[in-house]
Design a protein around this nucleic acid. Structure first.
Lengths: 133, 133
DNA sequence: GTGGGTGCAAATAATTTGCACGGTA
DNA sequence: TACCGTGCAAATTATTTGCACCCAC
């Protein structure tokens, strides 16, 4: 439940925090920029400020409640952390984002890091695609 | 040769353009932010402006002379386009960037896109790593 | 000569921070 | 009540743009 998750993160349960978390839960698998969340929540007769959204999202990211992704267009998008890792495909024509997971890909990355004398901590992988004809 | 490459891109051969291209050629396999290039070139008694660096780098990127990468820290880095595609590993402790290439990885990405009904246009993959103990 | 190119400073855009007020524990 | 959290506006940071001058062709 939402309030519990916020408490577990060592944060006070406040209205803005609940609203952000609730909005993300209502739209599973979707990605939002801070500004999109701001606009959406404002329409729900909320007095929330953009700066608060950024602060809350950063806290949630640190707490592992939310995942932040950086696509090539510059801004960052956030989504609820479901615990299941996945990567993204972005349709360059429509901007549509598809999540995918490939065990083979994950394993290959670990192997590649090892080949170069490293240990894999994290990765960022985005495929830019077009609808096949 | 440098001047030729610039001409081929349909651009006039000017001092700033030569200086940027020359600096990148002198440091193969290295990545620079626009600001780093600015500082470096200024030290070489150049009157170049930061805005010009951004303009020139964008033109070079469009022309395919230079590749632009966006790591998670926010700013973009540029390197000479050698024509050989590769991906990057970033050491999260030192910030050091290692280039690597894996045919297996490239093939897997094409296959993944196809599995989802897409055609792969481009990709962005960065491994965040730590030196193995 | 002329139009593209440049440096500088001002304009944007995304995100962060300072501050006085408000709400949670 | 004490202090964290908030909204707002101002500050930052990376990048882009307007403009008068300059230079490659």
């Amino acid at each position: 439940m939402k309030a519990q998750d916020i408490k577990k993160a060592g944060l006070k349960v406040t209205l803005p925090r609940l609203q952000v978390l609730e909005y993300l839960e209502k739209h599973p698998g979707m990605h939002f920029t801070a500004d999109e969340l701001f606009t959406q929540l404002r329409q729900s007769s909320s007095e929330i400020g953009l700066a608060t959204i950024y602060r809350v999202l950063n806290q949630f990211e640190t707490a592992g409640l939310v995942v932040k992704h950086q696509f090539d267009n510059g801004h960052s998008v956030y989504e609820l952390d479901t615990g299941e890792h996945h990567d993204h495909m972005v349709d360059v024509d429509s901007g549509e984002v598809t999540e995918f997971y490939s065990k083979q890909l994950e394993d290959l990355q670990v192997k590649l890091a090892k080949d170069y004398g490293y240990e894999l901590i994290d990765h960022n992988m985005v495929l830019y695609v077009k609808k096949a004809k």
